[in-house]
Design a protein around this nucleic acid. Sequence first.
RNA 1: CGGGGUGUGGCGCAGCCCGGUAGCGCGCCUGCAUGGGGUGCAGGAGGCCGUUGGUUCGAAUCCAAUCACCCCGACCA
Length: 569
Amino acid sequence: MRVSRSLAKTLRQDPGEAETASHRLMLRAGMMMQVGAGVYSYLPLALQSIQKIEAIIREEINAAGGQEVLMPALQPLEIWKQSGRDVAFGDNMFHLFDRREREMVIAPTHEEVITLIATSNVESYRDLPLLLYQIQTKFRDEPRPRAGLLRGREFTMKDAYSFDTDEEALDVTYQRMRIAYRNIFRRCGLPTLEVEADSGAIGGKDSHEFIMPADSGEDTVLVCPTGDYAANSERAISVIFPAPESPEGELTLLETPGVKTIADLVASMGISEAQTLKAVFYAADNAIVLVTIRGDIDVNEVKLKNLLGVRDLRLATADEARSAGLTPGSTSPIGLTSIKRIGDPSIEQGNNFVAGANQDNKHYKNVNYPRDFEVDTIAPIGTSKAGDGCPNCGAFLDEVRGIEVGHVFKLGTFFTRTFGGDYLDDEGKLNPMVMGCYGIGVTRVLAAAIEQNHDDKGILYPAPIAPFQVHLVALNADKEEVSAAADETYAQLLALGYDVLFDDRLGESAGVKFNDADLLGLPVRVVISPRNLKNGVVEIKRRRAAESTQVPAAELSAAVAEALAKDEN
RNA sequence: CGGGGUGUGGCGCAGCCCGGUAGCGCGCCUGCAUGGGGUGCAGGAGGCCGUUGGUUCGAAUCCAAUCACCCCGACCA
């Protein structure tokens, strides 16, 4: 591609609306344009990267036995009613009416349709296992789209669905897909953590996320430095630090005027957070639930939601708490029997806690479980954090921020039971197929790649997903000998099979061209200039290297190959 | 949905308080010079001031409504 003929121009200044690195750089580099909140046009530079990512995905999923299909975004609401997921998705799904006033949706995902496909094509165990996938546009009316392609309302996703005879067969498929995913991210040149994940409301047993470490990420992952454990914080089960224990004291009421929070308690009594209990009240599908947990640990709402099996979970308002008999500021499980009470195991890790008294401006000291209060259920609902112990080896866990780019999980038989997805086994009996599902956010991978690979001058593409591999720059291109040599080099590189962006612009200064090259971040830059021509050399610089090297013009091909190879390590 | 903010040439912004018919930088076009890290000089093109309504002799500016977008929180690839 010749820059003189290319559509998009680079911007010298950062666009005002973009704060996140990938968003800012993609707009500056002329890769995309915003159409609406979370909705973008992909211009050639972005599209070519996306297509390279897709090509790698196709190769690996095909190698894993996948067959590519393409399903519609526009779907009748009916099938979503059938699965009940019209309610589950709620406002996150786009709805519309056709001319006959039939309600349609624009699909956020494709379990319903793929199950219908499998249901009408699979008859016996001889048709299984089956792995179907598509690369297609998803529509989700996100509550808050953000950061360009990191979280859009319209985005490209690779979604794969597997159908197996039973759980054991699904295990095999699931492991094969995990390996395919590792291959995909490795081949894209993108280091990715594979972590245990929450499988969500309909999820089955196993679930893993692929997380690209990046500060701008929305996920927090806990990783054991020994490498034997990695999990999303939504899901992580860690060993908590024990609180100091002492001989049990007598339950004593304290006057604590003005003390409303754990921080207040800690400050006024000179104790540690781990020597307190906090009681947090939630509205769970409109019932009030009281959660008691050690003061140094935060409630993990994902775990709590899963435990309660509710759809909506939020902190209750102070008024709701009062009408349930609680005293905000001094909330306590002590003496409380009227509402559902959940306890985290941390309330047994330590003793003689300070806790609320359910009376204004009063707390108790020497609170001990179960001597002084009861709960209905003890279950781990705390948030793991850095410094907790690894559940496998006890080492201190590290916390890493990252972007979720892939998710695999076992679905089980929910959809096949709903849509009659039965097959005949080798004894002639009907069984529901067992499903797995596997997603990669393709456009998000691009944004995450830039989050992970940039400096203050611009993007640093991993070579496999760069829109072009080589950025050929002609300096003083209006000089006859330069343009002739550059044209020749361009043809030569194309003939060698490289994707080349050729900056053939007349009249742009060297500085402009170099800065554009740094901004676009293609892995290898080749410079043709009067100076180099006089010396009989071409100049090669890797974007990631500080210095350029000069090689005889005849060795160009080998030098480019070597530079690209270096980049892939 | 709650909280905070912004809408003025392609991009970044000023002007708004205190109403008088829009300005700066970048980019773009033309010419001359320059020629290895956003080069210089000269000339030029380009704006329904988000939208609607109101106040006024007069509105980018004041009032009201509305729309859009961004950021922070609950959701997901």
